[in-house]
């Protein structure tokens, strides 16, 4: 997770229409950075998955969108954080097909595949923070 943050925006995630707004804002950022259409779609889809996780498993939280620069590379970093129950077994949560509730169990593992960098911090009772980066 290296890189210098150049600008940021913070969005609340409180209900399912916030997730739609998150998708729209991430799309705007991705377009401004001139990511390719496929990369834009991957980024927005991952934001949708992770935003839903924040809402459903973390009981709501927030997203920080930022632009990061690392040498010649530019990218978009998304940080989803909540103060929910946390994830007891991160490795298990990343496995495809694992789901704690309804869903296909592709949210975390799938988002990881859509992004270049993926980091998750969580402990039971201490909430969850997922940080992802898509480099241009």
């Amino acid at each position: 997770m290296t890189g210098t943050v150049t600008k940021t925006e913070t969005l609340p995630i409180k209900d399912s229409s916030d997730v739609v707004f998150v998708r729209q804002r991430v799309r705007v950022w991705a377009t401004e950075m001139k990511l390719s259409l496929v990369d834009q779609t991957k980024l927005v889809t991952a934001a949708s998955e992770l935003g839903r996780n924040t809402l459903e498993h973390g009981g709501g939280g927030q997203l920080e969108i930022s632009e990061v620069v690392n040498g010649l590379r530019k990218g978009i970093k998304l940080t989803f954080s909540d103060k929910g129950p946390g994830i007891p077994d991160i490795k298990l949560a990343l496995t495809d097909g694992y789901t704690s509730r309804q869903g296909m169990g592709l949210g975390l593992g799938g988002s990881k595949r859509l992004m270049n960098e993926f980091e998750i911090q969580s402990a039971p009772g201490e909430g969850t923070t997922v940080t992802v980066i898509r480099w241009k």
Partner: peptide, 14 residues
Amino acid sequence: MQPAVAITLVELGM
């Protein structure tokens, strides 16, 4: 389904 959407879905594992 748009190409970019299809590529992303496959990458997602669906």
